[in-house]
């Protein structure tokens, strides 16, 4: 039997998620022994023609060309998995969705007229059908291995969509909210990182995007109770997963123009 083929695609992104595949150092040879890596330009300039059994898609759609290209990727991919916050939620570049992109380009570029871009940054699923979304900014190495392994044997990946709090408690972290009053997005954030930040006494930054059933009002109440200003609460939800509908809702529950009274 031929080995299944794997292709890696890049859209608007920083490449950090696809590099996670190279970070699988100990397992990389095992992956290469089970999968034909047919297209992965971060690793090799050799590109084998499609169609491909599995496509890992990184990045968001920010140009008209990319909106066309993702359709072709979909057509030549049996299974399409998005990797990371850009591909799954629009990435940090989705901040443009709340602003005027022409104003941005006029400030950033010497020749804004060279820039051809869409007014929004949107996730892959807004354009084509996606078979599985792997969250994170960047994605977690173990979770990437789990998805590839599960696809190889045809089982469902073990990627729970519950809160980061599960991982904190399973790991034995002391809750930074209850014990220290530290602002933390853990209760509304998708598990997957292994509760990395709280393990180092920091609040969760929400890199993995919204958990399955986030309660926006309750989370904003929690952040207010830690003394966070409204504008800071808005900013907390407008980072890597700014375009995730649940995080948009969270940022809208807070009142950005209200300053802390004290």
């Amino acid at each position: 039997m031929d080995m299944p083929t794997l292709a890696v695609w890049k859209f608007a992104s920083c490449d950090g998620c696809q590099l996670t595949l190279l970070d699988c150092e100990d397992e990389l040879l095992a992956i290469a022994g089970r999968v034909k890596i047919a297209r992965f330009t971060e690793a090799s300039s050799e590109i084998l023609p499609g169609p491909y059994d599995v496509s890992l898609v990184e990045g968001s759609i920010t140009t008209a060309d990319d909106a066309e290209r993702i359709r072709r990727v979909r057509e030549m991919s049996r299974t399409l998995v998005t990797i990371g916050a850009c591909a799954s939620a629009g990435g940090v570049q989705a901040l443009r969705n709340f602003a005027d992109v022409e104003e941005f380009t006029s400030v950033v570029y010497a020749r804004p007229d060279y820039i051809s871009t869409l007014a929004t940054s949107t996730p892959i699923a807004a354009h084509v059908d996606v078979d599985f979304e792997l969250h994170g900014c960047p994605i977690d190495r173990r979770q990437l291995l789990e998805v590839i392994t599960a696809l190889l044997v045809g089982r469902k990946p073990n990627i729970p969509a519950h809160s980061v709090c599960f991982e904190c408690k399973q790991r034995g972290n002391v809750c930074v909210v209850a014990a220290h009053g530290t602002p933390c997005l853990g209760p509304v954030t998708h598990a997957g990182c292994g509760a990395l930040c709280p393990a180092h006494h920091r609040g969760c930054y929400g890199c993995f995007g919204p958990m399955e059933t986030p309660n926006a009002a309750a989370q904003v109440g929690l952040l207010r109770a830690t003394g966070m200003a409204e504008a800071d609460i808005v900013r907390a939800f407008r980072t890597f997963n700014a375009g995730a509908p649940a995080f948009i809702e969270l940022s809208q529950v807070a009142r950005p123009h209200e300053r802390r009274s004290e």
Binding site: G186, V188, T213
Partner: peptide, 23 residues
């Protein structure tokens, strides 16, 4: 309206015993 459905109460409860299996 107040519950985050984060699961902390069940994790810290000394008698909540539910588990799932991962293959």
């Amino acid at each position: 309206s107040r519950c985050l459905t984060c699961g902390n109460c069940t994790m810290v409860c000394p008698t909540c015993f539910c588990t799932t299996t991962e293959d």
